[in-house]
């Protein structure tokens, strides 16, 4: 691949991520503002965004944040919230034939939900290239880190995110992504099982176990419906 094609791919990746950047900036601002209310300095909030780069687990961390911070509790919560990345990276890893081994591992460190979803979508219609992935990931990463920093610095000036509805931007993005994965009745079974298990677990079990519970229930539903289909087609 020559430099011209690489540049084209990089720019194409940037174009693909641009609407998501507009969506992530308010979420990053909210994260920073929430972090400031929990007593984190802008440097600490920015550092978390830069090193962790996983919005869901960062919001959960803010939810359970204590002083002094408990690294075991926070670290375990991050593991639990992000355990989905194991499967996301396994799935996207099969689409990275054009990547060298080091490039695969480096790319996976930037596997935020939005980046992963856009990359999976791209892989359906074109060959995934490192240049395209870099164009996708770099602006999104910068937007997340800088908006988190700005949110923490501005803090109270942003107003109450709940009144403005900005706390809802994050679930809203996930709902849009869920709709994008719709494939028919089997998806309905997965969503139903996952949603029911998550709501029930969240009601009865404290902490963030509901995410793992919902994911496992959804996976189980997929295995059950997949198996019954196998039986139907067997003569």
């Amino acid at each position: 691949m020559n430099d011209d094609t690489k540049l084209q791919d990089f720019l194409s990746g940037m174009r693909a991520i641009s609407p998501l950047i507009a969506a992530v900036i308010p979420i990053g601002l909210v994260f920073g503002a929430v972090a400031a209310t929990k007593g984190l300095s802008p440097a600490e909030a920015g550092l978390m965004s830069a090193l962790v780069f996983a919005g869901g687990s960062q919001f959960v961390a803010m939810d359970i944040w204590t002083h002094p911070a408990s690294w075991t509790g926070i670290g375990f919560a991050a593991l639990l919230v992000n355990i989905r990345h194991v499967l996301m990276s396994a799935s996207l890893g099969t689409r990275m034939e054009a990547f060298s081994q080091p490039a695969r591992y480096l790319s996976m460190l930037f596997l935020a939900d939005e980046i992963w979803a856009m990359a999976e979508f791209r892989a359906k219609v074109a060959r995934l290239t490192p240049a395209w992935f870099a164009g996708l990931a770099m602006p999104f990463y910068l937007a997340w880190v800088l908006s988190g920093l700005a949110g923490a610095a501005l803090g109270a000036f942003l107003g109450d995110p709940v009144v403005l509805g900005l706390d809802f931007a994050f679930p809203a993005v996930f709902i849009v992504l869920v709709m994008g994965f719709w494939k028919g009745p089997e998806t309905a079974a997965v969503l139903l099982a996952s949603g029911a298990a998550a709501v029930a677990t969240q009601h009865f079990v404290p902490g963030v176990w509901y995410i793992a519970a919902g994911a496992i229930a959804g996976l189980a539903a997929a295995l059950v419906t997949g198996r019954s289909r196998d039986i139907e087609v067997t003569p």
Binding site: R84, F174, F181, S194, G195, A197, A198, A215, G218
Partner: peptide
């Protein structure tokens, strides 16, 4: 089963 994980995980996150 792997393909069913994205909707399962995203739904679990937003369901509450």
């Amino acid at each position: 089963a792997i393909e069913s994980i994205p909707p399962a995980v995203l739904m679990a996150v937003v369901a509450p």
